[in-house]
């Protein structure tokens, strides 16, 4: 009994911070549910959760064999057995689309998360330290940012090779500057907050100031850029695959590549092989954008209010 309580306490202690952070994010979302940004965010969130569900349970929903070449007759139009038809090499389009969600979400998670993990601390450090370190980092990041994203990703992908993880890394490089810039600018304004000066006056260590006083107040903007950059990630990954620089051929589902393969049949009136993968890209991107835009409309006024 007593041990149970002890255990409970330890669990709340460890989980306390993240749970509180998530809760503090959801509270405005619940409060704003009847306003336009609130509705947008909820639609986006539900769409994203739907895709995550599909991605996780793909093996349960459709057997992987259906995504193999020559599993079925080629180019069957949508019918009762093949809801979205079959493609040029006899794969079930529906199965490809479902398994494609898994692939896209994995790349998105790797790309956006890595960019966050690298970009956030560098932005924080750069903004906090300032001076020539800051200038140098801004210069580097801006030059990466100025480079056309898809081209850069294609270049990196060509160098480090195909594969889900490699594509994730190639995409990360494009989005690091985005996280860097947003984090840095938020840090610059938070650094001037009076409570930061007060903490310094009370003899707080630099690390404490950077982590407890600045980082916690900066991290609020992350969900917004995370959803927006994730939407972009999907497009870039699809673009790379479309260009043939993306994944290996044996990946069970890859929207971008399927779209590229489907291109040659479009002229003969075979629409189903390109429509459905394309639709999925659009839907997932829209969902993430709704979530990102909605969140930014909810969170930014909150920030502004807090500041005034």
């Amino acid at each position: 009994m007593g041990q149970d309580i002890q255990q409970q306490r330890i669990i709340t202690k460890i989980l306390g911070k993240p749970v509180r952070y998530v809760r503090s994010l959801f509270r405005p979302l619940v409060r704003e549910r009847r306003t336009l940004p609130g509705i947008l965010s909820w639609i986006g969130l539900v769409m994203l959760l739907g895709f995550i569900f599909i991605g996780i349970f793909a093996p349960v929903l459709v057997p992987i064999q259906q995504t193999n070449a020559l599993a079925y007759p080629i180019l069957l139009p949508p019918n009762a057995q093949h809801w979205m038809g079959t493609d040029g090499i006899g794969r079930d389009v529906f199965a490809r689309v479902i398994w494609g969600a898994r692939t896209s979400l994995t790349i998105m998670a790797i790309g956006a998360l890595l960019a966050l993990i690298v970009g956030f601390p560098i932005g924080l450090f750069s903004g906090y330290v300032g001076g020539w370190v800051d200038r140098a980092l801004v210069l580097v990041m801006d030059s990466v940012y100025a480079f056309p994203g898809l081209l850069l990703a294609a270049l990196i992908a060509a160098v480090i090779g195909k594969g889900i993880f490699n594509i994730g890394i190639a995409i990360t490089v494009i989005y690091i500057p985005l996280y860097f810039r947003v984090t840095r600018s938020q840090t610059l304004s938070t650094r001037e907050e009076l409570y930061v000066e007060a903490a310094r006056a009370l003899g707080a260590r630099s690390w404490t100031i950077m982590l407890r006083y600045i980082a916690f107040n900066v991290v609020i903007v992350i969900p917004v850029i995370f959803s927006l950059s994730a939407a972009d990630t999907i497009l870039t990954a699809a673009g790379l695959s479309y260009l043939g620089l993306g994944l290996e051929i044996d990946v069970p589902g890859d929207w971008g590549r399927d779209l590229s393969d489907a291109q040659k049949y479009l002229g003969s009136g075979i629409w189903w092989t390109s429509l459905f993968p394309g639709l999925m890209i659009i839907l997932l991107t829209i969902g993430l954008s709704f979530l990102g835009e909605g969140l930014s409309d909810i969170i930014n006024p909150l920030l502004r209010k807090e500041r005034s």
Partner: peptide, 22 residues
């Protein structure tokens, strides 16, 4: 840093914004 607050402390004007809101 060790001297601040331990030997010399400062109270600011404008207490509304001097505490970390989080």
């Amino acid at each position: 840093r060790r001297l601040r607050a331990k030997e010399i402390a400062l109270i600011f004007q404008d207490p509304m914004t001097r505490l970390n809101p989080l």
